[in-house]
Amino acid sequence: MKLSHAKAIFIWGTVLSSVIFLALTYDSQRSFSKRTHEEKLDEHVAAGKWVWQKYNCNDCHTILGIGGYYAPDVTKVMSYRDADWVRRFLKDPPAVWPAERKMPVLNLKDQEIEDVIAFLTWVNGIDTNNWPPKPLAVASAAAPNPGEEIFKTQGCSACHTVGGIGGKIGPDLTHVGSRRSKEWIEEQLINPKSHDPNSIMPSFAKLPEKDREELADYLSGLK
């Protein structure tokens, strides 16, 4: 091979790849508006994105799968946590999720919290080509118990263990159904101090009655 051939490989390889890349960039750029629902991208979302950057959340958490691997990915967090939970969590993370690996208390202003929730809600709507994938075990299992879903979205496993998985702050609930009735559990959810005045468990009276009932139904079935 002559030097001129090698040079041609260099030049044409670069030009061809650049042309393809720029053409696809043009097309991708046009698709962002629809794929990311830009009509919903208001000033709160933009302010929330800046809060996300200002506190450098991205060097612990991944978003769209990019960033630090020290804390959970937040791309779809608003699908499995309600806004009220996120609000309480961001005010005082270790109190709401008392695990050994902690998120620091950032002393966020109320407006900053609202903005970051708006941002995460918007991110939740981005069409990510179905990423992250649905876990295979869940996808192949029967529809989950609605109470079990509430157990997850409310983050109960931060304090309670079920089947060996979860926190150790509160009692192990693996066999809670064999010692507590459904009514007892419902009462506990509304007013934890009714059974133990020293209980540190937060009240879940804010949950709709139906959700509380389903949660109690699920827990009382754990025998």
């Binding site: 390889g13 670069t14 061809l16 650049s18 696809l24 097309d27 698709s31 769209l64 990510t128 080509n129």
Partner: peptide, 18 residues
């Protein structure tokens, strides 16, 4: 460059891109 420039696409699977 031939593989790497368009190869940027391996970062465009899941971030809201086509």
């Amino acid at each position: 460059l031939f593989t790497g420039i368009v190869g940027t696409g391996h970062h465009y699977y899941w971030i809201g891109t086509p």
